[in-house]
Design a protein around this nucleic acid. Structure first.
Lengths: 234, 234
DNA sequence: TGTACATCAGTGAACGCGCGTTCACTGATGTAC
DNA sequence: TGTACATCAGTGAACGCGCGTTCACTGATGTAC
């Protein structure tokens, strides 16, 4: 979007100044300091990963895309993998926020909310492909960053809370273990996202959208636990 | 393993001669012709992919591991991606054979056989990590090889036949669509394999083995379709 | 308000490396006669 | 059985490339006085 009227020309993303310190009033030429290179590098990494995958992403390319020399990124990240880890970490944060927002504390009812969570998961895999690929496919490049080890735990915790809400209507002695439920639902969601949910890649002829496929699968699964929608009387 | 007694020193793998044409009786030095470089390169690729992933695999490395010059592979593969595609294709063949064997035409009953198929899927993901990674994670490197586009269809067909066998006990008007069933079961299996089924990577604290988790999930799912094990009477 | 200076985020040139790929070549094989 | 030769799977040297990383440096910023 073009800058509004008299505003400063820097691009602001989520409150971060993305521009150059010498404000570009004169036109194309830039000053010596970038201003927020760290953010610009993360944005560049996201773009490059979306285009070529986490393995195809290079530190030099990110610098080029951000418009700085190849040495500049070393002021902000120890090495290539640290930038990748930063992207993964932010990805998990965005992911968590999306799922928590979709869950909306189970309103108006747990089943509707869980369906929203599933759709949010699929939407994330499709629309935030760079994050998704970095989080789940970058592999060994992130092994040395232990802060990412537990990164998926938050999503699992949310699914578990959802399972607890769903199960609440059952008498206590009939309640299935909610951790198992969360794992099953997570696995089916992740499987559908991985196999059928990407934009164009690995596309198969599906009889329905990934979203509907997931919703149907979860409904059948919950039915199998005695958690069917209308709870038919005996 | 050392060669047995007076046998020829070449390594034979599945009937292919893997050795060098000048038999290494004299010790370490080798002849000019390899004998079965194509097979040796595939084997080298598998080993390298298992160690470093499909992205970390290099043509030069494969040549080195096979003990030939970096130019030699070009006699057998047009480029790096063609070798990768060959690996993927063989992977799908091995995968199919493993699943078909596990299914064993549904003996002794479809549910037992489907459980075996799920375990075979997880075993493949764990034990044939190089194949699995190349098939499902190599991504765009294989885009130009259309023969791999339909590579997953055979596995899906098998799951669909399994679904048909399972559903046969239901009256016709209550039978769920078998394609949908196959997709759900595939997704849950693939999800569990991807999230929890690798050897060491991305290990989480699970309350049960991936195999048992999958079995339980499929049983709940089938229960939800009215396909519970003992089919409790009304 | 003005100036000296410490700080530090950038530069740009350079390095060593491994990669994919090519090229003219050469040695082994196996076939025709 | 022996020899000439076509075939072709290998060699090894070389190329251009992009990458990750380092280094001494320099220009902009902002603070102390």
């Amino acid at each position: 979007m073009p800058p509004t009227r008299g505003s400063v020309p820097e691009v602001h993303v989520k409150g971060f100044n993305m521009g150059w310190s010498r404000h570009g009033r004169g036109g194309g030429h830039r000053g010596y300091h970038h201003g927020n290179l760290r953010e610009a590098l993360v944005a560049a990494a996201l773009q490059l990963i979306a285009e070529r995958g986490p393995a195809g992403f290079s530190f030099v390319d990110a610098a080029r895309l951000a418009g700085v020399s190849p040495a500049a990124p070393y002021r902000h990240f120890r090495d290539r993998d640290e930038l990748l880890a930063e992207v993964a970490q932010r990805g998990f944060a965005v992911f968590d926020a999306a799922l928590v927002g979709a869950w909306d504390e189970g309103r108006p009812d747990p089943l509707t909310a869980l369906d929203r969570v599933g759709r949010a998961y699929l939407a994330f895999a499709r629309q935030q492909r760079a994050y998704y690929a970095t989080m789940f496919e970058a592999g060994s490049a992130l092994d040395r960053h232990p802060e990412l080890r537990l990164a998926g735990e938050s999503a699992l915790g949310l699914l578990r809370r959802a399972a607890e809400a769903l199960v609440a209507k059952l008498p206590k002695e009939q309640r299935p273990p909610t951790l198992m439920m969360a794992l099953h639902i997570w696995a089916m969601t992740h499987g559908i996202a991985s196999l059928f949910g990407r934009g164009d890649q690995a596309r198969r002829a599906l009889p329905m959208s990934p979203e509907d496929l997931l919703e149907a699968g979860v409904l059948v699964y919950l039915q199998g636990l005695g958690l069917g929608r209308p709870a038919p009387g005996p």
